[in-house]
Every structure is written in C-alpha cells, then in structure tokens.
C-alpha cells in the first residue's frame, strides 16, 4: 500500500492504495467521481479522459501512484471552470452539446467535453479539420461525430461571444 495525494477538481484527496491501482479506478472508486468512464482499458477509446496538470490524458493508462501530487480536472469539475460563463449550472461547452445534439448514449461525452475544453483553451477558433484531428483519441460509437463537431463549433462561438 502506498499513500497518494491527488487534487481533483480543486479538492484534495488522500488514500492508501495498492501500487497497481489504475488512476481511472482511483477516480471512480476512491474519489467516487463516476463521470469518468471506462470503455476499453487499453488507451484507445478516450472514455476515461481527464485533464492532468493541464494536459489531456487517458486515466486508464496511468497508475494512481504515478499521479501522486497532481492536479486533475474531471467532468464533474466543469461546473467550476470559467465561472463567469456558466449559465443555469452549465458550462458553455456542456450547453453546446445539448443544443447541437452532441451526444446520444452519453458514455463518451465526459471525455469529449474535457477534450473540447482543452482544445478551445489553446485554439479558440478551431477549423472543422482541427476539431476532427483533436478528437482523434476519443471514440464515439453513437453519433458518427458530426453533431459533436457542430457542438464544438457552437461552443467556440459562444465562448468568444461571452468574452
């Protein structure tokens, strides 16, 4: 057993964990944040996407002990991002996914939203091509991506307008 300290969505967590515990399982079971999903556990689907020290990662590919001392953002933390832009309890990106039908079963959505959040920070004006490239690591089995892309374009507009 090993002690880990991880800050998730601004809240400090401390647990004794087995060295083999995956970060995604830490987030889901120890921190009890179940918006982060598992779709493959081989790093291919992106359902487990979180933002780790500002970078997108797949949390099934990292051990909890490796994340000791890190800061993580999960989908549940989107409610605290860009506080001035939140409306009715929704971040503009989340609102965009609702507005443009950017999800069906919703299983990929947390990963998609966090991916969008990271993308728009570095590129507030992405072209369709850039969006498609950015989504490379996130599979959606339902939508065929098109309405996700429209959601991201809509979110980009709204984020700019909100400035």
């Amino acid at each position: 057993m090993q002690l880990v300290n991880i800050t998730i969505n601004g809240k400090a967590f401390e647990h004794e964990v087995e060295p083999r515990l995956l970060l995604v399982h830490y987030i889901r079971e120890k921190a009890q944040l179940t918006g982060t999903h598992v779709g493959c556990d081989t790093g291919n689907c992106g359902a487990c996407t979180v933002v780790y020290n500002g970078k997108l990662i797949k949390s099934c590919l990292m051990l909890a002990v490796q994340a000791d001392g890190s800061e993580i953002l999960t989908i549940e933390g989107m409610s605290q991002q860009d506080p001035e832009k939140q409306k009715n309890g929704l971040h503009p990106i989340q609102d965009a996914f609702l507005e443009k039908f950017g999800f069906q079963c919703g299983y990929c959505t947390p990963g998609m939203v966090l991916n969008t959040h990271t993308l728009l920070k570095s590129n507030p004006n992405p072209s369709e091509h850039e969006i498609r490239e950015a989504l490379e690591g996130n599979l959606c089995m339902c939508t065929g991506y098109q309405q996700i892309i429209e959601s991201i374009q809509y979110a980009a507009e709204k984020m700019k307008a909100g400035k």
Binding site: R28, Q32, L33, T34, G35, T36, H37, V38, T74, I75, E76, M78, S79, G89, L90, Q94, D95, F97, L98, E99, F101, F103, C105, G106, Y107, T109, P110, V113
Partner: peptide, 23 residues
C-alpha cells in the same frame, strides 16, 4: 421540432448513472 434533450443534462455533466456507477 428539434427540442433539446433537456431531461438528459446529466450526460453532459457526468452525472448519469450507468450500471458500474451505482453506489
């Protein structure tokens, strides 16, 4: 009409409860 899936906000917030999420 293309009504928004407002009942399904939980999906964009990570609050949907799938089997593995049942507490």
């Amino acid at each position: 009409k293309p009504l928004r899936r407002n009942e399904d906000e939980k999906f964009v917030k990570g609050e949907a409860v799938y089997v593995d999420d049942i507490d």
